[in-house]
Nucleic acid binder design. Structure first.
Lengths: 96, 96
DNA sequence: GGCGTATATGCACGAAATAGCATATGCGTT
DNA sequence: AACGCATATGCTATTTCGTGCATATACGCC
């Protein structure tokens, strides 16, 4: 399990998406692509990857597809995720 | 920092090497290649990658090069590593 | 049904990662 | 100096990954 999770997170756009979704809210693809400055197909594909890795879940809502963190993420995976998010945040702070 | 670390860990042979080095001991390349069933050049290159990512440190000892975990791994990286190792261990247990 | 917006996907391409083979380098032994 | 063992590295082939472009699909609205 860790291998799939790690490869899914080891890409800038995908990690960025996870950071955004880490607020616990739902976000549609168009929001993500705007905030991450990614093209539509690119963002869509990355979200597929995250979905396959079990990190996120999607839901159709009218014309939009809303992504959110997978609430049933198993414990070990959750621990990795938290550590990664914490590290990313720390890194951004030091950039000041 | 998390990106480099994640990419370094997101490969089976490298993750295996880290798991072996997690015992806190030093291990030379020949030990690692035997235990992980990898060719010499392959193992050497993967260790270079881990070294560049700052995960491991090496030391020449006669004809051998001994690798060990980087003792100065920064806190956030350390947290990620621990979570990954824990997840890997959990996964192996469930394989019974 | 036709149109506009949002998202997914087939296809092709360039970039990067991985691996093997051969060879170089470092070190101890004789 | 010659040899053997351990490790690194140059070169190349193969594969995988990320991307853009075009197109398909889904949905709401008129």
């Amino acid at each position: 399990m860790p291998l799939a999770l790690l490869s899914a997170l080891a890409e800038p756009t995908r990690l960025g998406a996870i950071q955004i979704l880490a607020d616990g809210q739902e976000h549609c693809v168009c929001q993500l692509m705007t905030r991450l400055d990614a093209s539509q197909s690119r963002m869509s594909r990355h979200m597929q990857t995250l979905k396959q890795a079990g990190l996120v879940v999607d839901r159709r809502d009218a014309q939009w597809v809303r992504y959110r963190m997978n609430p049933d993420l198993p414990g070990p995976a959750c621990a990795i995720l938290e550590a990664v998010l914490e590290a990313a945040e720390t890194e951004q702070r030091k950039a000041a």
